[in-house]
Design a protein around this nucleic acid. Structure first.
Lengths: 155, 155
DNA sequence: CCAATATACTTGCATACGGAAGTATGTTGG
DNA sequence: CCAACATACTTCCGTATGCAAGTATATTGG
């Protein structure tokens, strides 16, 4: 009862805690199939999805870092194996030699489209039980407001 | 426009993607102050909060692992520095010698209460702009449905 | 023009994580 | 009773991450 009262008076905190728990749950549930079926980590999939939605389907490493909420060094190291697989290639900017774009290849585009389908399937399964279309839409809308200020689009 | 149509027909996917992004955003924003003010990582704070809400304010390592969506080895290693700090102590079960409880100490209880206050403040700030009480409550309720099956209570 | 500063990226280092293997204890079926 | 299996925990190993430092290029202010 006390927990209930406390929860009612601390709605933002409850939302944040449940959001973190839901995120961990989703990552746990999605990572396995993503790795075994597509050979990609969740982070790599998100990286490719950002590229897919970017102009010219390419982004600099710092832009990717901001979109992925990761450090620049992490992006550098994430790009290396994807480059080796042939999903991305390195491109330089003739006007600014500091920039090293991570650009999606044809193979990468094909891969990210398959990955997206897998993620869509699993996402739908997540709400299969006792969730109305309106509930899901409401959740998506509210979460969208939280991420409204973030750079980049993934869907 | 195409993205808009696609988004509308893939609401579960949109919700999942935005949930992951919101989670990364929150972790990024909370981790700094949590570390500098309380000397704790976000994961350590969640561990202590689980202990605070558990019966006898203690849990076995496997229970903690389930609640934290972490591996058993991770919990073992997370508990070590907390034990060194004096926030938790190791307890054994007289009936089952395999069990090694992680139990909250008085110092740990004091620490987790302060951490909780910090998290509550930051959580409130997250919704300070353009969020009505009803919006926050709706979000908390929907996220609560996602984590309803999870073991343990944090709020 | 150029010195100072800012930006983009990479690499070294310390830390954190999951999975597999190992150890210890508990449970179960014959 | 005890052999086979299950459970709880720890340690080892490979991998991933952030931060700080280093390099290279671009921009800015005098």
């Amino acid at each position: 009862m006390l927990a209930y009262i406390e929860a009612m008076s601390n709605t933002p905190f409850v939302a944040v805690i449940d959001l973190l728990r839901a995120s961990a749950l989703i990552q746990e549930r999605f990572a396995g199939e993503l790795g075994s079926v597509h050979g990609l980590a969740l982070g790599e999939a998100l990286l490719l999805m950002h590229l897919e939605r970017a102009p010219l389907q390419r982004l600099t490493r710092v832009d990717l870092a901001k979109r992925l909420h990761a450090s620049a060094s992490t992006v550098t190291r994430m790009a290396a194996p994807l480059e080796k697989t042939g999903f991305v290639i390195r491109q330089s900017d003739p006007r600014d030699a500091r920039l090293a774009y991570v650009a999606l290849t044809e193979a990468g585009l094909a891969a990210v489209r398959e990955v997206r389908q897998t993620l869509e399937k699993r996402s739908a399964e997540l709400f299969r039980d006792r969730w109305s279309e309106d509930d899901i839409a409401a959740l998506a809308h509210l979460l969208g407001r939280l991420t409204a200020g973030e750079p980049g689009t993934l869907v």
